[in-house]
C-alpha cells in the first residue's frame, strides 16, 4: 500500500515538473504538454485523496478532468497547428504580438 504522503509527493513532483516545463520551454507544443502534466498531477491528487478518504468523488473528478483535458488538447492543438501554418514557428517569444 502506497502511503498518502508518497502520493502527495508524487503529485507535487509532477506539478513542479509541469511548471518548470511551462516556464523553461519556448516551444508552444511543449508548453501545452507541460500544462497537461500539471493537469494530470492534479488528477492524481484527486484520486489519491479519494482513496484516502474512502470516497469515490475523487475518481469522478478525475473523469471530469480527463474530459476537460481531452477537449483542451483538441482546441489547443488545433490552435497550435494554425499558428504553425501561419508563422512557420512555434517560439512564443517570437510569436509575442500582444505588446505591440
Amino acid at each position: 500500500m502506497i502511503s498518502a504522503e508518497q502520493l502527495l509527493f508524487f503529485s507535487l513532483t509532477l506539478f513542479v515538473i509541469g511548471v518548470f516545463g511551462l516556464l523553461v520551454r519556448r516551444n508552444l507544443l511543449f508548453m501545452l504538454i507541460s500544462i497537461e502534466i500539471m493537469l494530470n498531477a492534479v488528477a492524481v491528487l484527486f484520486v489519491a485523496a479519494g482513496s484516502y478518504h474512502h470516497n469515490s468523488d475523487g475518481q469522478i473528478m478525475y473523469l471530469l478532468i480527463l474530459t476537460l483535458a481531452a477537449s483542451e488538447v483538441a482546441v489547443g492543438l488545433g490552435l497550435v497547428i494554425q499558428m504553425y501554418r501561419r508563422t512557420l514557428s512555434l517560439d512564443v517569444d517570437q510569436l509575442s504580438k500582444m505588446h505591440e
Binding site: L23, R26, S96, M98
Partner: peptide, 14 residues
C-alpha cells in the same frame, strides 16, 4: 510588466 511575453506572464503567475 505588460511586455506581452507569455512566459513572463506565466512566471509572474507562478
Amino acid at each position: 510588466l505588460q511586455n506581452g511575453q507569455l512566459r513572463w506572464y506565466s512566471a509572474s503567475l507562478v
